[in-house]
Design a protein around this nucleic acid. Structure first.
Lengths: 254, 254
DNA sequence: CTTGCTGTTTGACCCAAGTCAAAGCAATGA
DNA sequence: TCATTGCTTTGACTTGGGTCAAACAGCAAG
């Protein structure tokens, strides 16, 4: 049998209520989506919940053996990989209800490092067990395929953003992405706190911090945003959307 | 006009011998990898082979209902998506033994368009059947998870390339990628024909055709490459590798 | 052969974003 | 209280690669 230390719901006693996938507020976003209650119980049985991890703590490192994928329960996490020459590339920010670590499946080794941007709680989903369960629950298999596929399409959107869009467009697109992910969790789409630093934003979007800062300044001057350090308020949603989609007259391709 | 072609197993009679996954030269690269012979037969039973598709014909279009993924058997294919404002972003080039179309799983609609760069043959793998088969053959499920994960890691490498590297580095990296994929298929790593146009290269790498042309010119002047239109010879592999990894003194991040 | 079409190369110029430098502004803590 | 440390902002300057334009090369059709 499985020799991993088993975290029973007992270890979650620190919390006010017994956490499980069935009563998790995020189960309409996360892996349990579209599962029947009994299937959620089966999934729940393999999911391990840990006590919160602190800001700047790591969930896993690039090169670590891959055993599990992770779902963010609260807080936020950034994933990044390190290039040959030691530079980092932030490949994603993950919010509650979102899954990370799927890039480790291909070589059975984590391809990126995951670091908490703030105090966060995560669910660990052992991949071996998830595979077995998927083989028995077609809906789970399909849904997991879909989540991996979504990661692919999101990466491809980022590729397009980096390849074709100006600094202003990139920043606008990131803010809109965060906004819509907030909305998905019933939080304000117009007012939120950025959990990541300017450095992280710049790194993610392929820009320097100076450019990030200047763009944000520019958007404030245009009354599109109101930014106080990490607190963001979108004053003009329309305008921001407009900026994100502005076509810079590139020549047509292929 | 819709140039899509209809794939039925009947159409494979045109070939000299019965093609199947078991005797396919690519079965050590493709989906059958690591399957036992009888499992390969099961996979083979769901795979549909078509007669070759011509240059510039489409395999599927962005927005089409998603039913199958595709494996390139010969030739080459490019995938691209179209942005709101009508510009294209090439998201990948696919060579024999490589799978494409996995970005369609998430929304059950193809997220990109696939177009043959030259006369090519592909295998169509109905996704529904692949899911069922995966549930019965653990190795197949695992391998397919791995192939999707590889797509993710490769997209993330492209993200890093676009976000952090100069034009020279991007071109060098692409050439090395094509070279190593050729080697994987027992073809020359030093001499090959680029199936895609300069426009496609530029589009993929986030550069204009002029820049692509200039960089290639520069690499020829340095005797790293010998290029005649689409024919490429790598004269100095070391140097090319060096160029691909050159650290442009960016400031450190995060 | 010429004409037209499509893709590639080359040159001259320009600008968005990178670089360098310095100042501002929290938060922490002795 | 005032250093200390780590962001973030702002300004002045530079540059890689984009833009525009023109020439060139390959190839198919007439």
């Amino acid at each position: 049998m499985d020799t991993r230390i088993h975290l029973t719901s007992d270890t979650t006693c620190h919390h006010d209520f017994k956490t499980n996938c069935n009563n998790c507020r995020l189960n309409t976003l996360c892996l349990p989506l579209a599962l029947e209650s009994k299937d959620i119980d089966a999934l729940d049985a393999i999911v391990q919940r840990s006590k919160p991890i602190q800001k700047n703590e790591y969930l896993f490192h690039e090169g670590d053996p891959f055993n599990a994928i992770y779902a963010v329960r609260s807080g936020s996490v950034k994933a990044f990989s390190t290039t040959d020459d030691g530079r980092e590339q932030v490949t994603g920010f993950y919010f509650p209800g979102e899954l990370l670590g799927m890039d480790g499946i291909s070589r059975n080794i984590h391809a990126s490092t995951a670091k908490a941007l703030e105090t966060s709680a995560v669910c660990e989903i052992p991949f071996e067990s998830l595979g077995e369960l998927s083989a028995r629950i077609p809906n789970l298999q399909r849904h997991f395929f879909q989540l991996m596929s979504r990661e692919i399409t999101e990466d491809q959107q980022l590729i397009t953003l980096l390849s074709k869009n100006s600094a202003d467009e990139r920043i606008a697109a990131l803010l809109l992405s965060i906004s819509s992910r907030n909305a998905r969790r019933q939080l304000s789409a117009n007012r939120f706190r950025l959990p990541m630093s300017r450095v992280d934003i710049g790194n993610y979007l392929g820009l320097t911090i100076e450019t990030v800062s200047r763009v944000i300044g520019r958007l404030q001057k245009k009354s599109v945003l109101q930014v106080d350090n990490k607190e963001v308020e979108i004053l003009n949603f329309e305008a921001l959307t407009e900026i994100a989609h502005t076509k810079v007259s590139h020549r047509e391709a292929s």
